[in-house]
Amino acid sequence: MHIHAYEKIWLAFAIVLILLLLGSVTYGAVGPGVAMVADSEAQIDANALDEDDRFAEPRVEQVGENEYEAYVVAYQFGFEPSPIVVPENSTVTFQITSRDVIHGFEVAGTNANTMAVPGEVAEITVEVSEPREYGIVCNEYCGAGHHAMEGKLHVVSEEEFAEMNEGGENE
């Protein structure tokens, strides 16, 4: 088959480009350690979330030194708990599910972003630093009130976090 020399050059460049893209994504995975939402958690009965010890009471729980788990339920049209309160400089693992339709869970302007699918549990781990308030939006259409669905993520100082837990607001 006859291919013009210039087109062969371009073909080579195109393959280099593809390898650059695949290489970057691989670097992101092994260098900074970006991990994908995957099938790490088992399926769950979305109609019986009250029988699950994580989602019966959506909450933030300390699971290790500086390690926290946030059990989040998305529903038409909001998130529980709201706000999600975590202490500064900690590692937070979100476990997110939906009790009705498909929702999104996006901490606006950051990389924390996942689908919340009924019957599935999405797990993502992030590291938070200084105290800051983030907005959480549902980024998948979920019904007529979709635009009103928002939540909050509050990263607070350690003192404030300890105070809140003593007050029993956030068990």
């Binding site: 650059l20 992101g28 350690g33 950051t110 990389n111 590291e127």
Partner: peptide, 23 residues
Amino acid sequence: ILVIAWVYIYYIEFLGRDLVVVG
């Protein structure tokens, strides 16, 4: 243009963001 734009968007815009998902 593609290479420059990609390097910017991946290494600066994406990896430079808050709350990188690490697990």
